[in-house]
């Protein structure tokens, strides 16, 4: 679904590479955490996928297409296949919940009947069926992020990109968002999520890709936030998050030692 081949990216005026010689592949239906210190290149990684930035070296493939080679007018088509959510939700404050979600379909020219049906469905999915007429400022942060997820998912994208989606939320609300993303992932949607949230990463035991100063330093199936298991203890209430998620994710996600399966890098 996503393939990076020796991708490097340096911003103008910035010293050093924001991303340096990254090669990896993410398969359809995978759930991937992107971790690393602040400034390690996580957002840059997502921006390359969205074609908000273009790699200086190497190629980025999405669904088999080298998106660096995409002509300007084909970029919208790429973005229709990618849903995207952010730490700050980015809702339109003057539109209701339903209008915010419908907007995403309206501006890509979907017919009204389709919009009505899909918006209703996706709002049920995120648990906001009853609040479709509310304004964003009448919602809690968690509910706003649900609206953002509904907007990102309403067009059934192949990939959902999330840049610190729980960054502004308390742990309990974050759990709810993670359950929702997990549900979306189970429909076959690939999810790539950049995060600093130790508890979530450790509890979910999904693939973890770690960046450090733009370099890929770890790629681990069913990984944790840090190498050291004890790192979970410094996270916010990792245990409580884990316990809630455990019931949802089944017995397989006990606190087992991380499997450090380094995946093929170069």
């Amino acid at each position: 679904m996503i393939r990076f081949e020796n991708v490097s990216k340096a911003y103008k005026g910035a010293e050093g590479d924001a991303l340096h010689d990254i090669s990896l592949e993410i398969l359809k239906g995978e759930f991937v955490f992107l971790v690393g210190a602040s400034g390690s290149g996580k957002t840059t990684f997502l921006k390359l996928l969205l074609r908000e930035e273009v790699a200086d070296g190497g190629s980025v493939y999405v669904a088999g297409r080298d998106i660096g080679q995409l002509s300007h007018w084909r970029v919208p088509q790429l973005r229709r296949n990618l849903g995207c959510i952010f730490q700050d939700f980015r809702l339109l404050p003057s539109r209701t919940v339903a209008e915010n979600v419908a907007f995403a379909l309206e501006v890509i020219g979907r017919p009204r009947s389709v919009i009505k049906e899909q918006v209703g469905q996706v709002l049920e999915l995120v648990g906001l069926g009853q609040k479709h007429h509310r304004m964003p400022d009448e919602l809690s942060g968690g509910e706003q992020q649900r609206v953002a997820i509904a907007r990102a998912f309403v067009n059934r994208p192949l990939v959902l990109l999330a840049d610190e989606p729980t960054g502004n939320l308390d742990p309990a609300t974050s759990q709810g968002i993670m359950k929702l993303l997990d549900r979306i992932n189970r429909t076959g949607t690939t999810v790539v999520m950049a995060t600093h949230d130790v508890g979530i990463v450790d509890a979910m035991r999904r693939r973890v890709i770690e960046l450090d100063h733009g370099k890929l330093i770890r790629d681990q199936a069913r990984g944790v936030y840090g190498y050291d298991n004890s790192s979970t203890s410094r996270g916010i209430p990792a245990v409580s998050v884990a316990s809630v998620l455990d019931e949802d994710l089944g017995p397989a996600t006990g606190r087992v030692a991380a499997v450090r399966a380094r995946r093929g890098i170069r």
Binding site: W73, P76, Q77, R79, R80, R90, A104, V107, I108, R151
Partner: peptide, 12 residues
């Protein structure tokens, strides 16, 4: 910015 993100065309 939302329109760009969800893939509205430039003309739109």
């Amino acid at each position: 910015s939302v329109m760009k993100l969800v893939g509205a065309t430039n003309w739109f």
